[in-house]
């Protein structure tokens, strides 16, 4: 899922300066699961904003709403009747959701309440880790299911580097060396021959270097 973290409260307060009525819009997708932008978090942020503004003697009116997903036009359309009522929309979705809202509601400022941080998963409730960097050319077949792009600090394709010490990465003793993990895993799978193959330099054009990407399912085009 896409992981996000709420922006510092002060930053959100600054974006809301001068606004009298806003909508805080949650997303029922990834950011609900990672506890940063769902129904509950909408209520928390709205409550905080109301209190801070009330305290300053400058109250703000807030419409609290959460839709299924903000990265899908059919759900984004659902707030059509609310958007004209407010001065701005504070989206609690990832950056994709914020932009889908902004694209649909061209005449309305749409502001981000989260910083979108990475693609990952939950180790346990409330604890999220990065696992994918969306490079566009998956290498997990060769590396025993452990991503050298996302998990090696240098994104090395033929690791480890000389900084690997007792299984830990040189950038931080708490960070596992991805290449140590890869080797351990390939060994246990009896697939060390895959490690012996030298991987060619990465083609970053499938990553962001080729500009913004799209994916089209032809059978769905009309």
């Amino acid at each position: 899922m896409v992981i996000g973290e709420r922006k510092p409260f002060d930053e959100i307060m600054r974006m809301a300066e001068g606004l009298k009525k806003i909508m805080v819009l949650g997303c029922g997708g990834c950011v609900t699961v990672c506890l940063t932008g769902g129904h509950d978090e909408v209520r928390v942020l709205s409550s905080q904003l109301r209190m801070a503004r009330d305290k300053a003697g400058n109250p703000i009116e807030i419409i609290e709403k959460t839709i299924e997903r903000q990265c899908d036009p059919e759900y984004v359309d659902q707030v059509e009747s609310i958007v004209p009522e407010v001065d701005a929309v504070f989206s609690m979705a990832c950056g994709a959701g914020v932009q889908f809202m902004a694209e649909k509601y061209t005449g309305k400022p749409v502001y981000p309440s989260l910083n979108t941080t990475f693609v990952g998963g939950s180790k346990k409730e409330g604890y999220y880790v990065e696992r994918c960097q969306t490079c566009g050319e998956c290498k997990l077949y060769y590396t025993g299911g452990i991503c050298p792009i996302a998990r090696c600090s240098k994104s090395l394709l033929n690791g480890p580097c000389g900084g690997s010490t007792k299984g830990k990465c040189e950038i931080d003793p708490d960070v596992d060396c991805a290449w140590q993990l890869i080797i351990d895993r390939l060994k246990s799978l009896g697939m060390m021959d895959r490690y012996e193959d030298i991987m060619p330099a990465n083609d970053w054009r499938t990553n962001r270097d080729g500009g913004p990407r799209k994916m089209i399912r032809e059978d769905f085009q009309r």
């Binding site: 409550s47 109301r50 009330d54």
Partner: peptide, 11 residues
């Protein structure tokens, strides 16, 4: 209890 309840009380 969730933060929502506690914040509402203060609000």
């Amino acid at each position: 209890i969730t933060p929502v309840f506690l914040l509402r009380a203060f609000e």
